[in-house]
Nucleic acid binder design. Structure first.
Lengths: 167, 167
DNA sequence: TAAATATGTCAATATGGCTGACGTAATTTC
DNA sequence: GAAATTACGTCAGCCATATTGACATATTTA
């Protein structure tokens, strides 16, 4: 085990499952977002800001790996509609620290709910250590160059835990 | 084990890993596609047609879950540039059965290569049964309503195995 | 013959990315 | 203190990929 690689067929099956699983995984929040006139980009902003309240715009850009112009539009909409607000940084007054309003946190929870259920159902298998392995596998799917940033993010976000993430 | 659900923190970490992993997973082929003036939609068509040569347009639409108008453009481009060709169905002459040209199959393999390497590296963990569990978990991430179709597809595609998928 | 199916196409629209350029305020560096 | 850099915002245009709705054609089925 671990010596011989996965068979061609099994590997292709996993590639395809990655496609099918992700497609359905994001379909849950998509329906909810539609009711608000939002899209997936809004969801990502809500999620990450909710996980790390007070984060800077640059930190958010680093995580999403998109341009500030792309972020600009969705962020503006979320602010205009009262789901996100900004506060001038105290140490560095150039910064516009990002926070969720109450409505923003509620929406974030509403969007996360179905995905949490789906994850929990998916890893609740008889084999026991599925969650651990699944996490390990997904982690190794991230490009090596990005792993440190992803690990840092997960560790840090787990520590601060977001307002309603069980902290 | 299996009784108590995953902790809030662990579940959120998996949700985020799903995002990071998928983002990097599709980044491999994206670079290659750019050289051909293609996008992810072209990749999906190449992949699935290559896995099931002679499939109908409707079968492809069912798998991709997009509209025929969306498929129309990418399919036309792939045909115009000589990566896909169509053959009139023998039993039903309304059908336009889809096949990859040699160039199409080559490109498909080139796109699949990095993803296969990434999957194999990701599941090549000491714990042994990672691949099996990972597959099971991803399968259960698919919406119940879609599972039969996905299972059918994987089983059928594994059987016919595509021209160069190890058959 | 009529209805349904498989496919293709035209037109308009939306989302979410992108590049490039420019501007302002604040901080850091020399 | 002047200059360079950083953090952020914004305008303008472009591209890829998806959508809905409408219509056309060929073929098969009832």
């Amino acid at each position: 085990m671990g010596d011989h690689p996965l068979s061609e067929q099994d590997t292709v099956a996993l590639i395809e499952l990655m496609f099918f699983a992700y497609r359905d995984f994001v379909s849950d929040p998509d329906g909810i977002l539609g009711q608000y006139g939002f899209g997936r980009a809004h969801h990502r902003v809500l999620h990450f800001v909710g996980r790390d309240p007070g984060m800077t715009v640059q930190q958010l850009l680093d995580i999403l790996q998109i341009t500030k112009q792309s972020l600009g539009r969705v962020l503006k909409e979320l602010i205009d509609k009262g789901y996100v607000f900004q506060k001038e940084g105290e140490a560095d007054r150039r910064q516009r620290l990002l926070y969720l309003t109450e409505a923003g946190e509620e929406l974030r929870q509403r969007l996360m709910g179905p995905q949490m259920n789906r994850i929990r159902r998916a890893v609740a298998l008889p084999e026991g250590s599925a969650a651990h392995l699944y996490r390990k596998v997904l982690y190794h799917m991230v490009s090596p160059a990005n792993r440190e940033a992803v690990r840092d993010w997960i560790d840090r976000a787990s520590l601060l835990g977001g307002p309603k993430d069980g902290g």
